[in-house]
Amino acid sequence: MNIVVAVKQIPDLQQIRIRDRRPVLDYVPCVLGDIDKSALEAAVELKESVQGRVIVVSAGNGEIEDTVKEALAAGGDEAVLVEDDTLADADSSVVAKVLAAAIRKIDDVGVILFGEGSADNYSGRVVSAVAADLGYPQVGYAKQIEVDGPLARVTRSLEDSDEIIEVPLPAVISVVSEIKEPRIPSVTSILKARKKPKAIYRLDDLGIEIPSGKNITTISNLAPVSERKGIVVKSVDELVKILKSERRLER
């Protein structure tokens, strides 16, 4: 049984600058988001128990072939990619359709892992849409997964409790970052990543229909303004008093 991990290439968040409350993306390299790396790490661990392969799936522009090396260095066995420049800013319904079509090309799929939301937009819409498209059950917020024959036992991290459920496979499971700390890959595994098998599809190869109009329009996407209060105090006592009145000293 194979394990699929869907990963998304995003601009390296550490290298983004904000100008006029908008991100400046020039010269910022593409990387994988941290939750996706946690999902991958969980997949690598699961692989031991199911004796399958970890197959990384991703859709994106021409850089995706390069970006996915990071996942192949960190334990992915092969990659299935959909490469098209229009995918860079495609909306989530299109991406879900594309990913579902790519996953259909893979044999013997058992578990399909996603990060709970992408590290850039965090809309979290793709997971459900892929599950619906494939007709598989979906489980969210997984912090632990065990595969037991035709079932997966999933511990879900809910706000004030954990929930353990069983789900028949194949299933789409989205994970929270605490499921696994992503590993630091070794230099040798980075150098070997380029030799791992990759299947690269164009949109036309997938036999799906992409709606021409946009379903989703982003009206505005601005960094929050952090306003300082500009309170000047004259003594420590006064500072403590203010902090207390704002209930900031209670923890």
Binding site: D66, K69, E70, I184, P185, S186, V187, I190, L191, A193
Partner: peptide, 18 residues
Amino acid sequence: TKEQQLIQSVARDYAEKA
């Protein structure tokens, strides 16, 4: 290259974490 970027971040991550 992508490999060089990754090797750079391996060293950076290891230095910062360990």
